[in-house]
Every structure is written in C-alpha cells, then in structure tokens.
Amino acid sequence: MESSVKQIKNSKIPINKRRKPNLNITNIIFKGFLWIYATLSLYPIVWMFFYSFKNNDEIFVSNPFGPPTTLRFENYVSALTQYNVPKYFLNSVIVSLATVCLTIFLSTMFSYATARMRWKGQNFFRIFVSIGMFIPVQAILIPLAILVRDLNLSNKYLSLIIPYTAFNIAFSSMVLYGFLRSIPMELEEAACIDGAGIFTTFFKIILPNLKPAVATLAIFNFLQAWNEFPIALILITENSMKTLPLGLLFFQGQFTTDWGAMGAAMVIASLPTILFYIFFSNQVEKALTIGGAVKG
C-alpha cells in the first residue's frame, strides 16, 4: 500500500513538468522557508541549554544568545541540591501518566457515544463538556481547592490527577469527536451484521482505528500535566507531593531570580517531555501509515 502511495504521487510528475520553471523558483523559496522555520523551532532548545550554564549577567546583558563563555556546572548542582529532584520527578511521572491514561479512557468512551450513537442531548452534552476548554483556571482555583478538601483528597496524587483529567477531557473529547465523525459508518454495520455487541465493536473495531488520535492525545495530555503550574501550586502543600514545575519556585525571589539555576532545572524537567514526544510521535506516524492502509 505504501508503495502504491508513492507510485500515485510520483506519477504526478509528468503533469507538473509542464510548469516546471515557474515551480522551481517557488519551490526553492518554499524549501528555504521550511528550513528557516525549522531552525526557528529548534533554536529554543539550544538556547535553553546554553542558558543553563550562564549567570544572570550573561543571560540578560552581555551574552543572551550565544554559547556560554564558561560552563557554570554549579547551576546544575544548585538545581539538583535545592530541589528534591528525584522525588519531584517521580511525582510528576505518576501524575502525568495517570492523567494520560484516565483522560484517554474516559474521553474515548464519551466521544464515541456523542459522535456515533444516537440519544437525546448528545449535542448538548458534547458542548457542555467542551466548556472545560475555556474556563480560566485561575477563576476556579479557590472553589476547586475547597472541593478537593471536602472530597478528602488534599495532598494525594488524586488531588492533581482528578482535576487534570476533568480539564483535559474537554480537549481530548473534541479531538476524538472529529476523528470519530470521519470514520465510515460501515465499520459498525459490518460488525452488527456479524452479531457483535456494542462493547466488542467499540474495543475491537473502533479503538484500533483511533490509534493515531489516541497517540496524539497521549502527547498532548502528558505535556499538559507535566508542565501544569497554577493548580499544582494551589493544591499541593506537602513538600513530598510537589511536582517539578513547583521546584522552579526555589529560584524566583521578590526582587531577583537565579535564572541560570532555573534554566538548569528546566533542562532537567524538559528532557522527559522531548523523549516522550519523539517516542509517541513515531507511534502516530506508524499508526497513520497502517490506518491509511485499512481505509484505502
């Protein structure tokens, strides 16, 4: 199948040939643009890495953009010692992974029901849940904190996992809804004729088709949970329950901030997200190629 895709696309060449001269110039400009934009997207990581070895003067005044003049490893030392890194790291991993799993589990079921099944109020409830996407988090912090206390969740992993999931469901359901609407109805019809029940159909036929979307959402939700700051700041009071973003507080003073050490902390905190992304992105890529084969 993959090769036939190539064949088809390759066979376009003769048509294009007729406009070749014109196309070449735009092509070169376009290619150039793609590479420039790629550089622009890649530079921040390099910059963050440089930054983590500098002091405040270099960061802001003498050398904001180039490589560091001296490698200040003490930034990493102070990031690692001031911060209970291993513990915070573990907390972040647990909270983020649990959020990803729970969010995907709930939102695939919910969006299947709203996108493909027929019941009264399906549109209403779909939009109802999408409200989660545009509630300013800062507005509900205090009510949320009271709620978490009343549910007896204070200073437990669930005190973060549950709010993160509840908020992420909105985004995930909207993405999944779009995907589910574009899968052909014949899938269920065939399953139905074969005598499969709805749950079998959902888990065996529909979910496999959602793989690219699910992998994409795994990335989105992971990033969301990993980098989340305002809710964690308000809800976590126990030092042993803190997540990585809260550790950045150690460097920010009222009048001065130790930006270099903060940069080092951010490098440490960013690595897992980059790895997680590259891994799942490759999954998406594979899934999409296979998914295309199923449909084509």
């Binding site: 647990i94 992974l97 649990a98 799993c101 200073n155 437990k156 992993y157 669930l158 996992i161 329950m241």
Partner: peptide, 9 residues
C-alpha cells in the same frame, strides 16, 4: 499508577 497513587496517599 493508581495503586502507586493509592500507596502514596
């Protein structure tokens, strides 16, 4: 993760 979370709490 949940069992871990449970333990933690």
């Amino acid at each position: 993760v949940f069992s871990l979370a449970g333990c933690g709490s």
